Amino acid sequence: MDETGKELVLALYDYQEKSPREVTMKKGDILTLLNSTNKDWWKVEVNDRQGFVPAAYVKKL
């Protein structure tokens, strides 16, 4: 969790967005987890953008 109590995830792999609903991340990025109710796609925030990334590409910290 960060200082505001939000849950964080670590990008395990690079991911290039394939639609406007997704976000690009690089391996090693720390992202804010917004929603993990879907087992396949998690909603995150990175670089002031919100979108989805494959759940298998990130790990909760």
Rank of each mutant, 00 (worst) to 15 (best):
M1L: 12
M1P: 13
M1G: 14
D2I: 14
D2V: 15
D2C: 15
D2A: 14
D2L: 14
E3L: 12
E3S: 13
E3M: 13
T4R: 10
T4S: 14
T4M: 12
G5R: 14
G5N: 12
G5D: 12
G5F: 13
G5H: 14
G5C: 15
G5T: 12
G5A: 13
K6C: 14
K6R: 14
K6V: 13
K6A: 10
K6H: 12
E7G: 10
E7A: 11
L8C: 11
L8I: 08
L8G: 03
L8P: 04
L8K: 12
L8E: 07
V9Q: 00
V9L: 12
V9K: 00
V9W: 08
V9P: 00
V9G: 12
V9T: 02
L10C: 09
L10V: 15
L10S: 04
L10T: 07
A11D: 00
A11C: 12
A11N: 01
A11E: 00
A11Y: 01
A11P: 01
A11T: 03
A11Q: 01
L12D: 02
L12R: 05
L12W: 04
Y13P: 00
Y13S: 08
D14K: 03
D14M: 03
D14V: 02
Y15F: 07
Y15H: 04
Y15E: 00
Y15V: 01
Y15T: 01
Q16T: 14
Q16V: 13
Q16S: 11
Q16A: 12
Q16C: 11
E17N: 07
E17D: 05
E17G: 15
E17C: 12
E17S: 15
E17M: 13
S19I: 04
S19P: 04
S19M: 07
S19V: 04
S19Q: 08
P20N: 10
P20K: 09
P20T: 09
P20V: 09
P20C: 09
R21P: 05
R21C: 15
R21W: 15
R21N: 14
E22T: 08
E22W: 04
E22H: 06
E22Y: 06
E22C: 07
V23K: 01
V23P: 01
V23Q: 03
V23E: 00
V23Y: 04
T24I: 03
T24E: 03
T24Y: 04
T24Q: 04
T24K: 04
M25Y: 02
M25F: 10
M25T: 03
M25L: 08
M25G: 00
K26S: 08
K27M: 08
K27Y: 04
K27W: 03
K27T: 07
K27C: 07
K27Q: 08
K27H: 06
G28R: 03
G28N: 06
G28M: 03
D29T: 08
D29G: 04
D29I: 04
D29A: 08
D29W: 14
D29P: 00
I30V: 10
I30S: 03
I30W: 05
I30K: 05
I30Y: 06
I30R: 05
I30Q: 04
L31K: 01
L31C: 10
L31P: 02
T32N: 07
T32H: 09
T32V: 15
T32W: 14
T32E: 08
L33M: 03
L33Y: 02
L33V: 06
L33E: 00
L33N: 00
L33D: 00
L33I: 05
L34P: 01
L34K: 05
L34F: 04
L34Y: 04
N35P: 03
N35I: 07
N35K: 07
N35A: 08
N35F: 06
S36A: 12
S36F: 07
S36N: 08
S36D: 15
S36G: 11
S36W: 09
T37K: 11
T37D: 15
T37M: 10
T37W: 09
T37A: 12
T37Y: 09
N38Q: 09
N38I: 05
N38G: 09
N38H: 11
N38M: 09
N38V: 05
N38K: 07
N38T: 06
K39T: 10
K39S: 11
K39D: 10
K39M: 10
K39I: 10
K39R: 11
D40E: 12
D40L: 13
W41I: 03
W41S: 02
W41K: 02
W41L: 03
W41Q: 02
W42K: 01
W42H: 02
W42N: 01
W42C: 04
W42A: 04
W42I: 04
K43L: 15
K43M: 15
K43F: 15
K43Y: 15
K43S: 07
K43C: 14
K43A: 08
K43Q: 12
K43W: 14
V44L: 04
V44T: 01
V44P: 00
V44I: 07
V44Y: 01
V44K: 00
E45F: 07
E45R: 10
E45K: 10
E45H: 06
E45I: 09
E45D: 06
V46Y: 12
V46H: 15
V46L: 15
V46S: 15
N47I: 10
N47M: 12
N47L: 12
D48A: 11
D48Q: 13
D48G: 15
D48S: 11
R49D: 04
R49W: 05
R49P: 01
Q50S: 11
Q50K: 11
Q50M: 09
G51V: 04
G51Q: 01
G51S: 02
F52S: 03
V53Y: 00
V53M: 01
V53A: 02
V53F: 00
V53S: 01
V53P: 00
V53K: 00
V53T: 02
P54R: 04
P54E: 01
A55K: 06
A55D: 01
A55G: 04
A55L: 02
A55W: 02
A56N: 12
A56E: 09
A56K: 15
A56L: 10
A56H: 11
A56Y: 09
A56I: 09
Y57E: 02
Y57Q: 04
Y57K: 06
Y57V: 05
Y57D: 02
Y57I: 06
V58R: 00
V58H: 01
V58G: 01
V58N: 00
V58P: 01
K59P: 01
K59N: 05
K59M: 15
K59H: 09
K60G: 05
K60F: 08
K60I: 12
K60A: 07
K60T: 08
K60P: 09
L61P: 03
L61E: 04
L61A: 05
L61R: 03
L61W: 08
